[in-house]
Structures are given as structure tokens and as C-alpha cells.
Design a protein around this nucleic acid. Structure first.
Lengths: 212, 212
DNA sequence: CAAACATACTGAACACTGTTCAACAAAACA
DNA sequence: TGTTTTGTTGAACAGTGTTCAGTATGTTTG
């Protein structure tokens, strides 16, 4: 039956349409002001229709969060061209922050909103997060294997690195940065963030020279 | 006039009563489920009354956030007994994480909810945050003065440290930790966090020995 | 003491929100 | 053509933050 095929295709198209509208409203109006009705208005459907394609608002936001990860992985593509593991690690930190600063709303949804996790369908694994973290662990492991960095556990060190970079992104996105940092540093906050990541990563190098 | 004094006192008392109820509801039901009506019910007043003591919900939440900082500063009191600057710095990281893990809802409000910042009355300074960060800068400066740590700028290093510690707290509170870390590490996450802070702080020591 | 006033408080309403369910129209099948 | 399945929706429910006219109480004044 070609009919069912077409219907399934149409269903998928409407789902995609809803999701696209949701992303648009989300990026335009922010997390708190993204309402089901606003999305429905944008695509000229009834709010009720959205519930035929997404279980509830949490599921819809989970789908937006997935779109965010797609975009982030796209940011990471050039990393595969970088042969040197340490250089790759530095660059991954830079790209990560780039993504966070350029897409604060999405980053918020992906890594900061707790609701996004609680609504994980069927208590399944957090695939997107695991994939992103996994690639970081791999890069750290590569640095260890190449004897550029020393660490007991690649996973533990990767977590430390992630936490540091995420902390910077978080403080910036949640607006705590500008309220605390001195005026003369504010214009260079983005640069500062990169330097901090570099500094931290370099401090794990085996060949690091004691300072002072 | 003793009458006005009494009235002012009563007004202050009711404000305190509302705030106490707000904190209670907030800690019990969490950020999203804290409604003006629930708070009003708890103290048996009309919801409208709350608006006579707080401009809006954001102002009320800002007051709760201030209570959070009071509690946090209380946690930090023992630090003044610690003479060694580096030991003090390590302990501050530990106490910070202690507070975050023990009061996740409050930490969320204080350092993660962006609304808390946007509602800063009259676009004034973030006094509480500045005080907390200031004490960290002081401790870092003390380490630099004692030639235990080397850094170009105490403020920049303090910010790096804060970002790292905050990153760990944030990932844990926003539920990203458990979804990404290996099973065999999960039981030791709290310990892990402390060890990571120690590791990072120690890597800034002048006398640090190259590893490997 | 009684009238005038000021203050503290509230009920009802408005404009939203997420979500559900019975009703309906249209397409697919017999 | 009649029946069944499918896709869509309007109306409603329970909840939210917030406002405003009105009330009731306590204080001050004539």
C-alpha cells in the first residue's frame, strides 16, 4: 500500500514542521515564553494537534534539545582534521565555548535546564550527552596514550575538564559573570574564557614547567 | 509616635512571615511549583497581600536568594580559623561544594536561575555574589602573596577556580552527572568532586612536581 | 464621643498557561 | 454508497501571576 507510506511521510512532515516552529519560537522568545499556543499559532494549527505528535511539553523540549546537539556536533566536525591530540583537545574546548556563547538558549536547554533530563523518555540513556562526553574522553585518552598528559583515569580527567568549561559557559549564560567580574575585564570575557581553558589544559601537561 | 513604630514593626514581621513561608514552600516543592497562592495559603493570607510586601514574584525570589547567601556565609565562618592560605582555599572549595550538594534548590536559585539576576532591584549591584567572590579573590591573593601559588591576576585565577567548582556543582544539580559518568564512579561522585578541586588547586602550586 | 481619614487586606476578575476529551470532518476502505 | 478509520479541533478544566475596586479596621481629628 502506497497510501500508508504517504501518510507516514505526511505525519513525519508535520512533526518536523511543529519542531521547526518550536525551535524558532524557542530561540526568539526564550525558554519561559515558549508556549504550546504560540507554536500552534505559528504553523496555523490547533494547540491540540501538537499533542498528537508530542506526548507533552517536556517531550517537545526534549526534541528541541536533540536539535541543539545536532548543531553542536556540526560545530565539532572540523576537529577530525586535527592530528595532534593535545591541539584537538584545546580546540574542542574552544568550539564547545563557541557553541555555548553563540547559542545560549540552546546550551541552556541542553546542559542547564533540569527538566530536560527528568523528561528523558522511558528513563532511557542520555544518548546525546553520552556521545558528546564520549568524544571528550576519547581525546583525553589520546593525549594520555601519546604521553602528553598524565592522568589515572581518562574519564575522571575528562569530567574535570568538562566541568571547568561548562562552569565558564554556565556563569556567562546565567548572567553571573558580568555582575562579579571587574569592569576592565568585561570586554575580554570571551577571550578570557578561552585562555582559562588553555591554562587549565596546559597545567595537565607532563612537560609543564613549574612557574614563579 | 509609638504607633507608627509598632506598625512598622508589624509590617516587618509580616514580611518576614511571608518570606519564611516562601522559603519553606520553595524548599519543599521546588522552584517550578512555588506559587504565590501556595505561599498565601500557608500563612492564611490572601495572595494579594503578598504584593503589598513584594513587588512581584521575582522580588520575592530575590529575597529567598538572599536567605540562601546568608546560609552560605554561615557555612564559611569556620574558614576564618584556618591560618594557612592554601589550606583555606582548599577548604573553601570543599565548603562551597558541601553547601551546593546539601542545598541544591537554593544553589539553583542563587547561581543558576537567570531570572534571579534579571530581577535585580533597580539594576543595582549583585551584593551577595560580589561578597562571596570577593572572599575567594582574597584567599587566592593570600596564596599568591605567600608564594604558594603563581598567577598574573588573582581575580582571573579566582574566576577560573569558581567556574570549575561551579561547573561540578551545576552538572550534579542539573542532573547531567549521573547520566554520563560510569556506573562504578557514581557512588563516589561527591568524593570525586572534592578530589577534582584539590587536583586543580594543587596544579597551580609553584612547588608542583611534574608527573609521569 | 462621633465623624473623617488612612491603612491593611481581600474577592473577583483578567489574561495567560498545559492538557484533555468529546465532537467533527475528511479520507480510505468495503 | 455506506462504514470505518484517521486527523483535527473547540471548548473546557485547573492552574498560574497580577491588578483593581471595594471593604473593614484602627487611628486621628473635630
Amino acid at each position: 500500500m502506497g497510501v500508508n507510506d504517504r501518510k507516514e511521510r505526511e505525519k513525519e512532515e508535520l512533526r518536523a514542521l511543529i519542531l521547526a516552529a518550536a525551535v524558532e519560537v524557542f530561540l526568539q522568545k526564550g525558554f519561559d515564553n515558549t508556549s504550546i499556543r504560540a507554536i500552534a499559532d505559528k504553523i496555523e494549527y490547533s494547540p491540540t494537534t501538537i499533542y498528537l505528535y508530542f506526548k507533552d511539553k517536556a517531550a517537545l523540549f526534549h526534541a528541541i534539545h536533540q536539535e541543539g546537539f545536532k548543531l553542536m556536533f556540526h560545530h565539532f566536525v572540523p576537529l577530525q582534521q586535527v592530528a595532534d591530540p593535545f591541539e584537538r583537545l584545546l580546540l574542542q574546548g574552544r568550539y564547545y565555548l563557541d557553541f555555548a556563547f553563540q547559542n545560549p538558549e540552546l546550551y541552556d536547554l541542553m546542559f542547564l535546564q533540569p527538566g530536560t533530563m527528568e523528561a528523558l523518555p522511558d528513563d532511557l540513556e542520555w544518548m546525546e550527552g553520552n556521545a558528546a562526553f564520549g568524544s571528550l574522553v576519547q581525546n583525553v585518552q589520546a593525549c594520555i596514550d601519546a604521553r602528553i598528559i598524565w592522568a589515572e583515569s581518562a574519564e575522571v580527567l575528562a569530567f574535570t575538564i568538562w566541568a571547568s568549561v561548562h562552569g565558564i559557559a554556565s556563569l556567562q549564560i546565567q548572567k553571573r559573570c558580568n555582575k562579579v567580574i571587574s569592569d576592565h575585564l568585561k570586554p575580554h570575557i570571551a577571550t578570557l574564557a578561552f585562555e582559562q581553558v588553555n591554562l587549565m589544559l596546559k597545567s595537565f601537561r607532563i612537560d609543564r614547567v613549574p612557574r614563579g
